[in-house]
Amino acid sequence: MHLTDLGRAVLIAREGRRLAAYRDSVGIWTIGIGHTSAAGPPTVTPGLRITAAECDALFARDVARYVRSVAATVPPDLADHAFDALVSLCFNIGPGAFARSSVVRRLAAGDRDGAAAAILLWNRPAELIPRRGAEYDQFRTPYALAPPRARRGDAAPIIAPGAPLSAVLPALPSARRSIPRAAATLPVRRPEPPAPTGTLARLWTALRTRLRRDA
């Protein structure tokens, strides 16, 4: 089992990318893409800075650990979208808490609806509630039906790098319907004939003057 490219992209969108150390919503020093000292070196201290390349390498190492933790505790036939959602949850709450969670217990009992509902129980601090809603939706919804969002309520879904625009269209049915209708209502503008120049312009002016005088 592995994290898909789309799962990786949505996890990065949820965690954010910071090259300078900062305190997260519960006061833990964090850097890069959700890296804390609990995940291993480097120890995150105030003033620590990393490069973009170091950030990407650190995330690749960190996320591999969480993927292994989830793969070791969930049914092997779990769909990609559901597995990706659980990696996102595990990345946020830690492998130990994930292994002991009711999400894992309900999956082991064959209760996948109950496991999805248990994702929503990890709702502290309150800032995490939109993320948990998005992880719940991701767990339950195949990517072919709707791409995931970083947080529930976000206007735009996440698509994997390099994915075609068609990958996002299932989430935008109203846009697909309205575009042809809107295009059909646009007025047709016919091109104006070019204005005469040179000798033709002088003849045209003389003709207009003659017509006005004769009238």
Rank of each mutant, 00 (worst) to 15 (best):
R112M: 05
A99K: 03
V44D: 04
L107Y: 04
A150K: 07
F83Y: 15
A118C: 07
H2E: 15
A115P: 00
R100Q: 09
S178D: 11
P125E: 15
A150G: 15
N123A: 12
L86N: 06
T51A: 06
R212L: 13
A39Q: 08
C55L: 03
A160D: 08
R65L: 13
R151M: 13
I28P: 03
E135S: 13
P191F: 07
P41S: 14
A167S: 10
I93T: 02
A160V: 00
L3R: 03
A184P: 01
R149M: 12
W204A: 09
S101T: 05
L3N: 01
L207T: 11
G114E: 11
R124I: 09
G16E: 10
R112P: 00
R18S: 12
H2S: 07
I28T: 09
L121F: 14
T30C: 06
G133S: 12
R18E: 07
G94C: 05
W29N: 09
A175S: 11
R14L: 08
Y143N: 08
Y66K: 05
L6A: 08
S174I: 06
T205K: 03
A97R: 14
P157K: 10
P191G: 01
R18G: 00
A117L: 07
R189L: 09
A155P: 02
C55G: 05
P170C: 12
D56A: 05
Y143M: 00
A144T: 14
T197L: 11
D214L: 13
A182F: 14
D80Q: 07
A72P: 04
D56K: 01
S69N: 12
Y143H: 00
R106Y: 12
L3T: 06
T73M: 05
R124N: 06
V70A: 05
A184N: 05
A171V: 12
A146P: 10
L186G: 00
F59E: 09
R18I: 01
F59R: 01
A38N: 05
P147D: 12
A53W: 04
A21G: 08
R105K: 11
L207V: 10
L200E: 15
V87Y: 06
T199W: 09
A183T: 05
L211D: 07
L78W: 04
R213T: 14
I158P: 00
A13Q: 12
I119Y: 06
G153A: 12
P170F: 14
A53H: 06
Y136E: 04
P41K: 06
A144G: 13
P164F: 10
D5M: 04
R61C: 03
R210L: 13
S101K: 10
